[in-house]
Design a protein around this nucleic acid. Structure first.
Lengths: 191, 191
DNA sequence: TTCTCTGTCTAGCGGTGCTAGAATCCGAGG
DNA sequence: CCTCGGATTCTAGCACCGCTAGACAGAGAA
């Protein structure tokens, strides 16, 4: 039985190797550079090996994205710890923006590329749920009479919009801080 | 000289044919279906003809996007005509959302795919400028003490975020109206 | 009628994601 | 220790992609 276990252990290691290599490659050279040939070359195996671990390239991207959701959730949780509501909201927003800025390729995989991750459904993976919950618990503090879930969704949308429009050059880099301040003011104001 | 003019006229017609065919194809079967072979087949010419009109596939997508910006600007201008500020803002937002919903592929070309359109620069094409101006003139009415440009950028980001997150299934379809209402309330409230 | 030049097409290059079938390795049984 | 069987990995190839060189045809001028 021991050899069986060793095999599985090695398989798991290689599985992780594929995911981390894909992520590293995407982060350093962009997702366009992550081809199955290049990825296979990087992990020093042949292409078909990838397909013994994942259904296809999309599944690899999805695995990277999942890793991202775990990390994002952790960072958001860490940022919610502040006491005062407004500061908590600001910390949360800044943590979210920082994550997106520090891991652009990862963020893309999470929110722009991988469409096949089941989001608000019964079989939604834990990390996806957790990320939204982290946002929610931070936002809910000063929801006032407003629906905390709706408020969270709107806040999230606004942050995501800022990120993706800034990245594409649609928004000037200069107004970054001013936009964030205004957004926080508007969200914070009870109606 | 007449034959020369006829030639140019025919070229212009074919140019438009390529753009409208690409758009129609993208809208009906998604951008993945828009390959140079398929597109050439659809307009009943061979592939190289495409390259005598456009530098590459990206340029075709950019041309489609440009068409989209013209239409979006027109719709936003039409929606700003309302008198009362809050109603104008709502009309503007609804027009924007409706445009994105009715032309998903076009919207993608404008805001997700074509990265090579120069946005906030000196050589920014007229339609791009016009679209933002239309938003700005609508939003500016109730900016109060706030910077109208910044407010516009934030409002735009929020709308864009709502659209793109909804499309990917990240946001439940159910809360759509509630999110819009809350967003309008928050943006409308002077701080 | 012949020549030229513009415009179009056929054929092909190097790349992509993915896979069938050959080859190889490794542990088990004689 | 050797041989066999099954799992694992690789080589080679498919159909497709964006793009282009060079052959070809057809219209207008001389």
């Amino acid at each position: 039985m021991s050899t069986q276990q060793r095999r599985e252990r090695e398989r798991a290691r290689r599985h992780d190797l594929i995911v981390t290599t894909a992520r590293k490659l995407a982060e350093s050279e962009g997702w366009d550079a992550v081809t199955t040939r290049r990825l296979a070359d990087e992990i020093e195996y042949s292409q078909p090996v990838l397909y013994s671990h994942f259904a296809g390239k999309d599944a690899i991207v999805a695995a990277v994205a999942l890793e991202g959701f775990t990390e994002l959730a952790a960072r958001l949780r860490a940022a919610t710890r502040t006491g005062e509501p407004r500061a908590a909201l600001e910390g949360l927003a800044r943590a979210y923006l920082a994550f997106a800025e520090e891991n652009p390729a990862l963020y893309d995989a999470m929110f722009t590329m991988a469409v096949d991750l089941p989001f608000g459904q019964d079989d939604t993976p834990e990390p996806l749920r957790d990320g939204f919950q982290a946002l929610l618990s931070g936002v809910a503090q000063f929801a006032g009479g407003r629906d905390p879930a709706i408020l969270t969704e709107v806040a999230w949308s606004a942050l995501h919009g800022l990120i993706v429009l800034s990245r594409g050059g649609r928004l000037p880099a200069s107004g970054r801080e001013a936009r964030l301040t205004l957004l926080l003011d508007q969200l914070g104001a009870a109606r």
